[in-house]
Design a protein around this nucleic acid. Structure first.
Lengths: 328, 328
DNA sequence: GTGAAAGCGCTAACAT
DNA sequence: ATGTTAGCGCTTTCAC
């Protein structure tokens, strides 16, 4: 910046002014400076900018997600990214893979990176570090999962209702022994979906066999393992409600491997739709979360909050949609 | 840092020393400082650190990938991330969605973020901006795609050979009219795979019907559309070689929708394996790229280069593996 | 072993 | 309309 000031025969303050289109600058000076900038192939340092002014936006956002292998989070991320891109924000992506130690480390990095704001799907609803960061004034919006005891913007889906609809649909279709393969029980969404599953049984006065509820860890392998246990039961289920994307795919692998026919031998419906649900054979029924939209809304909410830190918190609950295809 | 210096009754220089475990510090002074750090819940600012010393590592890496919806890149990313995490690097993830304008913007951001190094799968092999950054001394390693005219580390897969193996296998299995659904022809990997496809025909003296080669844009929808065109031909193919993940999934959707049986009516083999290839019905045959390993190797290479900028460039060519399952 | 001070690239208040 | 200057939080020489 010094070089360009010298080259253009002005002070660096003037350079800063033309760079930021801010303050009054004579047209001819501006032109001179512009030329020097071009000539010297100058690139502003976002780092210095951020250091200088906490008050001014660094145009850097953090995103903290649990599992980038899960297509749901990929779509959320894409939604966030789309908004960020349009508003000229860059993103630091932190994928903690359901590992709380890693999550903590990332949170610390994010903190010391002086980001403008953070979109997070925290592992635990009472994560102390994250709560602290919120209290210290960092704009945060939670997606998919909330945060206890503190005021934050939230974009979530009505998980209980989504599960309820899915299981009701299964029951209406005549299935009697419906299994639930749950993700990590410590994750709120897992519990909410289980609640919907239970409520559907209640509403329909269908007795629920607790042995049909399997708790896993939200990953592919647990879907595989738990589904095998289910199919090997002396009295196996006639339908499966799978707690998330990856669990569904794991379950499908076993079902096909054991040669069971869908939906004749066993029906399956997943929580989370995927772009390629139709590529499956048969096409998969699923509870669709508007993942892209969750990401977009979260991005918008975050940028709003950055621009107007005072505004009160918003909790957005998006609707799920039951995608009836041929697996049920 | 000032606060903690004051609190501990030392100078900020000393604080810096204990923070970085560097230089000689008296044990008792060190203890005092440590205590003050704890008390004041001090967090170092990575931003200031980066500003101060270009010489010292900022511990920030950039990753530039074309399409995060493609599970292949997700795995590459996971590989990179694993290495980065272990070596205490953070990652700025830039997903440009095959959009060159976006790619350019991201490259500029990365540049002004003072990252230590960059892992990129550039849209074009002769991207001028990226080439400039390499020449200016930014450590870069390319994955999946190379960069013309400049020396960079590269981690790629032998695409031609992978395709060759796949199509040879198809031919040996008795298929005669094998279609190729290509990704964007401007992407080198698309062309290399096409070359392998052609070579296989040559080697087996099988005449190749140019009408069976369809060029798309590497995305789901193009797989869908081009596969439909193929199946609707008066003289349709008996096997399909799909240029990537997303194309495969799009093709599968149409095949199922039109009620064709795999592999009786049509065989299909994809380039890129997926975790859930076994979840498909029938399980999908595929050319497996060791995506996670590509990411890891790239991460290692990059960190190596950051630590030893002088070392000469390495070009790593990883092997593909033919996963024979039931779709062929 | 420790402190003082310069400076990384930038912005903003204040002067001119 | 433009220049001067004081820092932002840190590292690193150079003294002591």
């Amino acid at each position: 910046m010094n070089d360009i000031a010298r080259k253009a025969g002005v002070s660096i303050a003037t350079v800063s002014r033309v760079l930021n289109n801010n303050g009054n600058v004579n047209e001819v000076t501006r032109a001179k400076v512009q030329k020097a900038i071009k000539k010297l192939k100058y690139h502003p340092s976002r780092v210095a900018k951020r250091l200088r002014s906490k008050s001014v936006s660094s145009h850097m956002l953090g995103v903290l997600i649990p599992d980038i292998q899960n297509p749901f989070y990929v779509d959320v991320l894409r939604g966030i990214e789309e908004i960020a891109y349009n508003r000229d924000y860059a993103i630091i992506m932190c994928n903690f893979g359901q590992d709380e130690k890693k999550e903590k480390l990332y949170l610390e990095i994010l903190q010391s990176e002086a980001i403008d704001g953070l979109i997070a799907a925290p592992a635990r609803e009472n994560d102390p570090l994250l709560k602290k960061m919120v209290k210290e004034g960092l704009p945060v919006v939670c997606v998919d999962r909330g945060l206890e005891d503190v005021e934050v913007d939230m974009v979530v889906v009505d998980n209980r209702e989504g599960a309820l609809k899915a299981v009701n649909f299964l029951i209406e279709s005549g299935y009697k022994r419906i299994a639930y393969i749950s993700g990590l029980p410590s994750i709120p969404t897992s519990r909410q979906r289980e609640q919907g599953y239970r409520d559907a049984h209640l509403q329909n006065r269908l007795t629920l066999d607790e042995a049909l509820i399997k708790h896993g860890d939200s990953k592919y392998d647990s879907g595989l393992r738990l589904c095998r246990e289910l199919l090997n039961m002396p009295d196996p289920p006639d339908a499966i409600f799978a707690g998330n994307n990856l669990i569904t795919l794991g379950a499908l692998e076993i079902i096909h491997k054991m040669g069971w026919k869908i939906p004749q031998d066993i029906a399956i419906i997943g929580f989370d739709d995927m772009v390629w649900s139709n590529s499956l054979n048969p096409p998969l029924s699923a509870v669709r979360q508007p993942a892209l939209e969750i990401g977009k809304r979260a991005g918008e909410l975050l940028i709003q909050r950055i621009e107007e830190p005072g505004r009160s918190c918003i909790q957005m609950i998006l609707k799920t949609e039951l995608m009836k295809r041929s697996s049920t």
